[in-house]
């Protein structure tokens, strides 16, 4: 199944560090793991709602803020979409559930980052008029939903290496990453597609992910 009708499909050639099935050096290149450890267990921070953004390594803060930006975008998309009336009744519980998850991701990442969290960006889901009917045409809404979900999956995956030394945060990122993949699969299903593009999902660099998201940032 192709996702050529999505933004992500359009930038596919720019995918970096993809897992090439035949690439023989994938399992011979032993990069040294970054030795960064978080100073406090994330679970404690989450339980107490006490942010520890200031004490996080810069690389981790940057990565989480990047993730938060994408989550803001998704949360705003479903916030508007669920109110707009564009979603046919039989799909509303799916998109309501997805919206709840994205809101939870925003809350969680903001909680972890504390005062280091970036502010919510301005959004324009018509992308300057390119998707002017996003709130009236379910096909347009669905195409953008798939784009955002597949983008989220690929973007989180692309950042995993930056969190390899921060075990608790890496685990939380993975726990978000697979939720985005569930969403992507079900959204594709609603679009009468298979929920995947093959046996292996590709990671996306931060640069490529931001390039895909930028048209929707006002």
């Amino acid at each position: 199944m192709s996702n050529d009708n999505t933004i992500l499909g359009a930038i596919e050639p720019e995918l970096v560090d993809s897992i090439a099935f035949s690439r023989r050096d994938v399992f011979t290149r032993y990069a040294k793991a970054a030795g960064i450890m978080t100073s406090a267990p994330l679970v404690l921070a989450l339980a107490s709602n006490q942010a520890f953004g200031q004490s996080l390594p810069q690389q981790v803060t940057d990565t989480l803020n990047f993730a938060l930006t994408l989550e803001y975008l998704e949360a705003a998309f479903y916030e508007q979409g669920n109110k707009s009336g564009v979603i046919p009744s039989q799909y509303r519980s799916v998109f309501r559930t997805i919206g709840q998850h994205e809101n939870a991701h925003v809350k969680l990442l903001k909680g972890v980052l504390g005062s280091a969290a970036v502010a919510a960006p301005g959004v324009d889901f018509t992308a300057g008029g390119k998707y002017a009917d996003v709130w009236e045409n379910f096909d347009t809404f669905l195409a953008l939903s798939q784009t955002f979900e597949d983008l989220g999956v690929a973007a989180y995956k692309g950042q995993a290496g930056n969190l390899i030394g921060s075990k608790e945060i890496l685990t939380v990122a993975l726990q978000i990453h697979s939720v985005e993949a569930r969403h992507a699969s079900e959204v594709r299903r609603i679009g009468l597609k298979f929920g995947w593009d093959g046996a292996f999902d590709k990671p996306l660099s931060k640069k490529a992910a931001l390039a895909a998201a930028t048209p929707f940032l006002a």
Partner: peptide, 15 residues
């Protein structure tokens, strides 16, 4: 990254 490339496909399957 390889594990990540597999787990999201498993999650797609789960859905």
């Amino acid at each position: 990254v390889a594990a990540g490339s597999i787990v999201s496909v498993e999650a797609r399957h789960a859905a």
